[in-house]
Design a protein around this nucleic acid. Structure first.
Length: 576
DNA sequence: CGGGGAGAG
DNA sequence: CATTCTCTCCCCG
């Protein structure tokens, strides 16, 4: 019964013929000496991810460095490329110098600007010859050399190999990065637009089809970023004009029911309107037809996001074979809450650089909402068949302020959180005292409100600093329920034509090997010392606690002092 | 804003 | 077509 699959495997395993989501029995047959690791330890990956992200971001001028998952990053390097294009000397291209810092002409690397660095698509017998009048080609050439330099630095300085794609938007750079991997890079060559065949000049005679379509056409429709399982199935159904041929036996890779981008693009009547009919409907994204049509044509004007200081949510979850009694649930809630609190400390707490409070920590952001989600396992049907509803249900509510208090020890805070918040939420989710069986429990903090940062640029010792910080923190908590206009935002208007015209350059990165055996060991940032909070936060913690003198019992609705609640809840637990 | 769906690694 | 554990963006009421 317990047919166990491995979830993922590293590149070495893949080289030897294994793949994701494979049966372990099957894997052992192919690679008898395969090492199976049970469970996962995401902490080290998270640390490595942060480190490498910072390293990559250090190359950026405009801060447009966006993470996707733990191991992929987009960089919009348009500004570096533009700057260095202006530096090119047409009379000596082979000894070009790529300047990495705007304010220091000595920092950078030498490169040969007469050609593309690394691989390119389409592969051709002779490397493309650079024409400085070809704007796009020149930019992609510069991007390819920057990518090469960053990959080499990443490997030499950090000990990580990486794979890169270079093109003009996020979709294309991500997809073209898959062409040569691992430890390689690929540039999607021009032309990116089809030449008008109505009046072909002698020079653009034969071959001038857009390399974008040439590249995308062979992809399965579901491989395009933004077109996932549900959407690709709907498109497939329509193209094949029959109900979804079940993809049983199609565990991975090659599709026999393959519908490619080309099949979709050239389907009679295909366009944004038809796609809207296929994909649209209540609950679906507005304008999904146009969006999908753009993806199919490699058009993507979404910006590479600036680095965000804090995530928009932090969640911890675990899955279970069987979880159907209250004492077990309590135990798990405590475990999860402990992990969550740790994560909040490592991700949301930073050293307070205020010279008056050395060694203390301050919150980068305050989550306002706590959410509890579960995935109930549906009871077997009367006829023995299994209905699968793998979906989650959730309840959320305000996150109690005491969790920001760093003076109490973790166990006490966790216990309080479980008793006053998580158990009541659990009762809202599962009012029945028994009969449920959970396959997953997740707790999350969301609605993160960033703490106004004073980066100290106003000068070192400022007597008003502490006071002003107190002001901003208090303001943050005062506005809770009021309709206050948002802070003014400096909106920099950029030229949307840049992306559409293919004048920006994106580099998508992937560092695939967080290898255990790497020579360079990546160490985590380690445990936070149990320090006192700063004077300011300490004081408002106390104030906020005052609001919680009484609590209402989630079960019997009785109101009572908060210190009595834990015992009261245990009473219910025993009773139920 | 609460709850859920879809898609990403 | 999810198995795992996250995370983001989006829609509806």
């Amino acid at each position: 019964m317990p047919l166990h699959q491995q979830v993922t495997c590293n590149y070495e395993a893949r080289r030897r013929g294994l793949h994701k989501l494979q049966l372990i029995s099957e894997a052992r047959k192919i690679v008898p000496d395969v090492v199976i690791v049970l469970g996962e330890e995401l902490g080290r990956f998270r640390d490595a991810s942060k480190l490498l992200y910072k390293f990559l971001a250090s190359f950026s001028w405009n801060g447009k460095v966006e993470r996707l998952g733990f191991d992929e990053v987009w960089m919009d390097v348009t500004d570096l490329v533009d700057y260095n294009r202006a530096l090119l000397n047409p009379h000596d291209m082979t000894n070009s110098f790529f300047q990495l810092k705007q304010d220091d002409p000595t920092v950078g690397f030498f490169y040969n600007a007469t050609g593309i660095a690394g691989h390119f698509f389409p592969d051709q017998p002779h490397p493309p010859i650079l024409d400085l009048k070809d704007d796009l080609m020149t930019r992609l050439m510069l991007g390819s050399h920057l990518a090469q330099h960053i990959r080499v630095s990443l490997e030499q300085d950090q000990g990580y190999t990486s794979t890169v794609g270079i093109s003009t938007n996020k979709i294309l750079s991500k997809l073209v990065g898959n062409v040569f991997k691992p430890r390689d890079q690929t540039t999607l060559l021009p032309p990116y637009v089809s030449v008008n065949k109505a009046s072909p000049t002698p020079s653009d005679k034969a071959e001038r089809q857009s390399n974008i379509s040439l590249f995308l056409d062979s992809h399965d429709i579901g491989k395009l970023p933004g077109i996932g399982f549900k959407m690709s199935q709907r498109v497939r159904d329509h193209i094949l004009s029959r109900p979804a041929e079940f993809e049983i036996g199609l565990i991975y890779g090659g599709t026999k029911e393959s519908v490619t981008v080309r099949d979709v693009r050239l389907f009679p009547g295909m366009g944004p309107e038809l796609l809207e009919k296929i994909l649209g409907g209540p609950g679906t994204e507005r304008g999904i037809g146009a969006k999908a049509w753009n993806i199919i044509n490699g058009i993507d004007d979404t910006e590479v996001q600036q680095a965000r200081k804090v995530p928009s949510q932090i969640s911890i979850e675990d899955s279970y074979i069987r979880l159907d009694t209250m004492p077990e649930v309590l135990k798990e809630l405590r475990m999860l809450a402990t992990s969550l609190l740790k994560r909040m400390h490592s991700d949301l707490l930073e050293d307070d650089d205020d010279p008056d409070s050395v060694g203390s920590k301050r919150w980068l952001a305050h989550p306002k909402t706590l959410r509890l989600s579960t995935r109930p396992r549906p009871p077997p049907n009367t006829d023995g068949t299994t209905t699968r509803s793998f979906n989650r249900i959730s309840r959320s509510g305000p996150l109690p302020n005491f969790i920001f208090n760093l003076k109490d020890n973790t166990d006490a805070t966790v216990e309080k959180l479980v008793q006053v918040a998580l158990i009541p939420m659990f009762r809202r989710l599962h009012p029945q005292q028994s009969g449920w069986n959970l396959s997953l429990v997740n707790i999350a903090v969301t609605n993160l409100v960033e703490t106004a940062s004073d980066d100290g640029k106003g000068g070192g010792r400022d007597i008003g600093k502490m006071f002003r910080r107190q002001e901003t923190i208090l303001k943050e908590w005062k506005i809770e329920d009021r309709d206050v206009p948002p802070d003014p935002v400096l909106s920099v208007e950029n030229n949307p034509g840049d992306v559409a015209n293919g004048t920006s350059t994106m580099v998508g990165y992937e560092y695939p090997t967080v290898a255990e055996g790497n020579s360079l060991v990546v160490r985590s940032e380690d445990i936070l010392p149990q320090t006192q909070n700063s004077v300011v936060s300490g004081s408002w913690d106390e104030d906020e606690d005052g609001d919680e003198d009484t609590e209402m019992c989630g079960v019997c609705k009785a109101s009572m002092p908060v210190f009595a609640m834990a015992a009261h809840q245990r009473y219910h637990d025993l009773e139920g």
